[in-house]
Design a protein around this nucleic acid. Structure first.
Lengths: 162, 162
DNA sequence: TGCGATTAAATCGCGAGCGATGTATATCAA
DNA sequence: TTGATATACATCGCTCGCGATTTAATCGCA
């Protein structure tokens, strides 16, 4: 009926008079926002055992595929910049999960690696956490996979604006 | 191929040896997270003209449908609680967009309404902002609508866990 | 009526996300 | 070689999200 990235919502001129559905229901940006909140809340108790936050966990997953990534490389994967990542990574370093060292070839660059503890956490969390959540969505593996592709494409499209 | 809410990612045992795709690509939670970041960044310059943030804007949209909502009612719509909403609403009050008054029938309750300025902002932003973003996604109105329904359902399913 | 339990918001402290700016290293051109 | 420019990361101040706690008002029930 109405668009959902953002729309005028149901009949603007009578908005004040008619009982109406929640206008937020027409906003894709809101359903994505709310699903993000919900994911965060589902993961939190699972990640509490490892004493990492959800964004920290995503960083660890991103770091698990390759040692010695730069801060800027990690940022490209996570779509974040050093103003967000530097403090986050320092917390992971303090927690003993990540090591940071300046690249001797270029002292401006910081190279990141998981410590053995960090790698163990990545492996364990990657193996243990997912099943419960997968089931909880009540969606088939195929549906989830195609939804994931759609969301990746949506993110790409939005990032290309301007 | 692999699950996408959260999965082991490509072949765990060879993770360290093989060049491999970004394991984050297999996480629906990450694609949702990244799309949320992207939406935020797309909206920011558009909302800057109105000097409101993205979450403030969502609150204004939620408030635009009905006057006199309680903080808790707004929270149910936005999936947020008073610890987040109270400061946000106070900023909107300071900006002259929202009015807060205690309910005389129950002094514990705070009733929220858009001021005329706030309503103008809601109307204007609701009418002006969407089109550009809709186009930018490169998706049809129907696809966006069904994606929205899917994301609403996903959020609901995640919220029902436990 | 009075008092403990419940409820609605507010407050506090922390991690995250980000615009703006700062600092140190590297590069390049004259 | 040197000075200007560019690059990589760090820092700062703000808003947001949230667990935990607090304050104030209301309710329930003896």
């Amino acid at each position: 009926m109405y668009i959902n990235v953002m729309t005028n919502g149901p009949n603007h001129t009578t908005r004040a008079e008619l009982p109406q559905a929640d206008p937020l229901d027409h906003f894709l940006c809101f359903s994505v926002y709310a699903a993000g909140l919900a994911f965060n809340r589902v993961y939190k108790p699972l990640l509490d055992r490892y004493a990492v936050t959800y964004p920290q966990y995503l960083a660890i997953v991103a770091l698990s595929s390759k040692d010695g990534q730069k801060v800027s490389e990690l940022g490209e994967r996570l779509f974040l910049e050093s103003n967000t990542l530097t403090p986050l990574i320092k917390r992971l370093e303090t927690a003993g999960l990540v090591s940071r060292r300046r690249d001797p070839k270029d002292e401006r660059v910081v190279r990141l690696s998981l410590t053995p503890t960090g790698r163990d956490l990545a492996d364990e969390a990657l193996q243990c956490v997912p099943g419960e959540i997968l089931q909880a969505t009540g969606m088939s593996s195929e549906d989830l996979s195609s939804l994931n592709q759609t969301m990746i494409a949506l993110g790409s499209a939005l990032r290309e604006i301007e």
